[in-house]
């Protein structure tokens, strides 16, 4: 198969970028999209040009590093996969494939397709945890958790923090990401003591980082590689309302 890749090139955060077109010929249908970028990069290197910078690491869809918008879709045309799991059999031979970075104000572009998603880390640092020091834990079976609850908590905890939800959202909203963490911890008995505080703190930092609000369009759910459902956003709203009502003025 042969393709043309129309790739966003940008030298650094402050520069303005533009598209460059490259050719990828003799591509195997079972080659992954990132492996095509590898080959294009080797060609660029040999031609004395600078290769395309793109984020990737595990290449099996779990680390959340890869972050391309392929033909206008974060993580490309396949359902429930990350950019690194997109295979060339998903495209038409001869197609021009447009590759862009995730675009959102809170995710500044560092170079080409590489963005800075540390805003997500800051949200987690504000409250995406259960405060338990090492060594303080009781026996794991001392706290039974129903199987359905544990499974639903896993569904939420499965979020890989890739940021595709933000990239897909017309408002660059991080609500799906935040709701996944709030749901994961809020479902479990261990997470109850900090439940109110957690949702208030995380939303506060989410807003401060410059993410937009949720208008419930559902684009995030559609592109999420781990199938985090929109219903978690509703749970977050519910938790947030409860937490705001319960909040006492003196608590910080």
């Amino acid at each position: 198969m042969n393709f043309k890749l129309k790739v966003w090139r940008q030298a650094d955060h402050t520069s303005s970028g533009s598209f460059e077109t490259y050719e990828a010929n003799n591509v195997n249908a079972n080659q992954s999209f990132m492996e095509v970028l590898d080959v294009v990069n080797d060609d660029l290197t040999k031609a004395g040009k600078e290769p395309i910078a793109f984020d990737h690491d595990c290449r099996e869809g779990i680390c959340g590093t890869c972050s391309c918008v392929i033909n206008g879709e974060p993580h490309g045309p396949e359902d429930k996969v990350t950019s690194c799991q997109v295979y060339m059999r998903s495209f038409q031979d001869g197609e021009t494939i447009t590759v862009e970075p995730f675009r959102a104000k809170p995710f500044p572009i560092l170079k080409d397709l590489v963005t800075d998603r540390s805003a997500f880390d800051k949200i987690i640092q504000a409250g995406g945890f259960i405060s338990v020091n090492t060594g303080q834990a009781p026996d794991a079976n001392a706290l039974p958790i129903g199987r359905e609850t544990a499974e639903l908590a896993f569904d939420a905890a499965h979020c890989i923090g890739c940021g595709a939800c933000v990239a897909a959202c017309k408002n660059s909203s991080a609500m799906l990401f935040v709701s996944a963490k709030v749901t994961h911890l809020g479902l479990l008995p261990q997470g109850q003591p900090e439940r109110n505080r957690r949702s208030l703190k995380m939303v506060e930092v989410m807003d401060a980082q410059g993410f937009g609000g949720c208008t419930n369009t559902g684009a995030c759910e559609a592109v999420c590689p781990k199938g985090i459902p929109l219903e978690f956003i509703s749970r977050l709203n519910r938790d947030y309302i409860t937490a705001s009502l319960m909040e006492r003025p003196e608590s910080e």
């Binding site: 129309k6 966003w8 598209f19 918008v69 033909n71 206008g72 879709e73 447009t98 862009e100 675009r103 959102a104 104000k105 809170p106 897909a168 959202c169 017309k170 408002n171 660059s172 909203s173 410059g210 993410f211 937009g212 609000g213 208008t215 369009t217 559902g218 684009a219 759910e221 559609a222 592109v223």
Partner: peptide, 21 residues
């Protein structure tokens, strides 16, 4: 909200899809 939302997503994609919305 609209002002904040627009500010959060200042740049559009060259190719845009409806993404199930």
């Amino acid at each position: 909200l609209t002002i904040a939302n627009r500010a959060a997503a200042p740049e559009k994609y060259a190719e845009s899809k409806t993404l199930g919305t």
